[in-house]
Nucleic acid binder design. Structure first.
Lengths: 334, 334
DNA sequence: ATTTAAAATGGTTACGTATTCATTTTGAAG
DNA sequence: CTTCAAAATGAATACGTAACCATTTTAAAT
């Protein structure tokens, strides 16, 4: 591998001068600069970013610990995060983390001495949070937050759950089911709470049979759907913990011969890009500003990195209903 | 930052021994090992991957230069590539490259001395190809290939184009349009050629008005759609260069009040995951094996990296029609 | 006890860069 | 022609690790 020393030798200058040519060319005389540039060109020299990181104690790298891309929410956020980071001069190490590989994911991030960590995969009660704080690396969580309520960007999840239930109630639905994710996750937890609150406020009955807070795998969602549809009094509406779940349920509903929204209303939360597609037109709840949560988070993170700010980021975006085609007024009693 | 030297001092051993504890613990006595492990734990020591890279001349990092995620093809491939790489112990630097940022993307990959490069964004006639070969870094292209015909993984694009046209023809369509991407890209180019060949083989007339090989932006696709629908003899079928384009066209068609497949048949190429969704059910052409192209490519790349093989990878997967719900037999002449 | 090979550990160096400090060169003012 | 500050360049070092070679310790065989 050709190094700056090789370039120096070839150009007849010191390695220091080569370094200067690349970093502070205004301090080197024109003829010298030309000589060095010529040598760089002739030798096809490319500086080694790792060596630079070592001496500068800065890697210009950010670790992204995201959920899997089959969840369209993470498609939108990953895209925004990577593009913004690159624009700002940072490389992004991406890992799609499932729960049992989480420690590993943190380890690689730490070993690479990244300048910052942006992550969605954190539980309300996650011991990793303390470690993260100890590490003294700027970090931020998006979509989810830790119980300590520090450094997060989210939508108003409680309100989102509330609005989605209210939406169904106002459409005349009496039997409303909930399909959400693990309650160990702040977003699902708060969305579910909001849902419950609305049901309570409107004095609707609610039996446990209609509640599923399961793993978010396609498999589990299908199971939940089948259970719901086998009930004597089928729900006429399903509120879901995320667009991703709603999309899965829609798929199930269709393959089982149910018509949405004629037989069944379904609403999501997140307002992911794909939900707007003409063929999908998912009714959902999302940020009023329609700002991408990932973008919001990464811009805050880079701000933290570059300005060494230590003040806690706490952003909760207000939400509203995006009324589309998977929900409708109920006409006749079942 | 706490280094292995600090650990050594704290444990009363040499830095060499600390290094051994981490890399070849079988060569260090139990009591010493315990002492060092204790020190590591107490000091919260985490080895510096960049320093290691420097001395080992291996970064365990792969650069992924992908197309944008709003193209679902890249959702599927990115996911597969990152997951497989991580499983195999590699970190992945992801960049979503648009054409004018390409040189920059290569530069960062080179500066980081990645162990390998996996990329989709290469043109048939791209000068970067020679540079890549000169760099002596293992690399592979997926989906697209360079005219030199080296190191690629693709589907049989010509056949894909051919089959999609043939599918429409056999359904009785006479006026078939083509909406594809830039012909500077091998996949689009070959798909288009296949389409043309089928039209020719079946002796169908084809006017230039029905052909669009445009930029793949949503904007451009919409423009193409409007042009097609304004024609005196509207096409009854559109063959597209990719599922991504087909999905855009479907969106346009719906928002313009056309019914698919009643008014218009649309077929894609790629068989992306989302095309199977119950609400979409896109008829498309895809690899018979249904192997993810990204996975195929990344496994070959890592093979190249680890076994220092230099033999050229040339994989072209055979394809077939996946007949779903966006195409149908034409009933009556328009 | 002595020898000896194997096991365990340590000292030193290299990786490629930026930085710090010292030295040389330049050119304008006297 | 000097003087001297400013501009330009260079020498030496540090960053944190693995690798190489040298040295010490251990334990088995005589």
């Amino acid at each position: 591998m050709v190094s700056s020393k090789d370039v120096a030798k070839h150009a007849g200058v010191s390695q220091t001068t080569v370094s200067r040519v690349l970093n502070t060319p205004e301090f080197v005389k024109k003829p010298t600069l030309d000589k060095v540039m010529k040598a760089i060109d002739e030798l096809n020299y490319i500086p080694n970013a790792h060596a630079r990181s070592l001496v500068q104690n800065k890697t210009n790298t950010i670790a992204l610990l995201s959920g899997p891309l089959h969840n369209p929410f993470f498609v939108d956020t990953t895209s925004a995060i990577i593009n913004y980071s690159n624009e700002m001069g940072y490389r992004v190490n991406v890992q799609y983390v499932n729960d049992h590989k989480l420690p590993e994911a943190y380890a690689t991030a730490f070993e690479n001495k990244v300048d910052g960590i942006i992550l969605s995969c954190i539980l309300i009660d996650d011991p990793i949070f303390e470690k993260l704080k100890q590490m003294d690396i700027p970090f931020i969580t998006y979509n989810r937050k830790h119980k300590k309520n520090e450094n997060f960007v989210e939508i108003d999840n409680f309100q989102a759950g509330y609005l989605s239930a209210q939406h169904m109630i106002e459409l005349g639905h009496k039997t409303i089911a909930w399909v959400g994710g693990p309650l160990t996750v702040s977003s699902f937890n708060n969305r579910y709470s909001g849902f419950l609150q609305a049901i309570k406020d409107y004095n609707l009955p609610l039996s446990e049979q209609y509640i599923f807070n399961t793993d978010t795998s396609k498999q589990e969602i299908s199971t939940a759907f089948h259970c719901l549809m086998k009930l004597k009094h089928r729900p006429t509406a399903i509120c879901t913990g995320a667009d991703s779940l709603a999309l899965n349920l829609l798929d199930d509903a269709i393959s089982e011969g149910f018509k949405v929204p004629d037989d069944l209303s379904i609403i999501g939360i997140d307002n992911v890009d794909i939900s707007q597609h003409g063929l999908i037109q998912l009714t959902t709840v999302g940020s009023i500003s329609q700002q991408n949560l990932g973008l919001l988070a990464i811009s805050e993170l880079i701000e933290m990195i570059e300005n060494k700010k230590n003040d806690c980021i706490k952003i909760t975006e207000p939400v509203k209903i995006f009324n589309r085609r998977t929900t409708r007024k109920i006409e006749n009693k079942q």
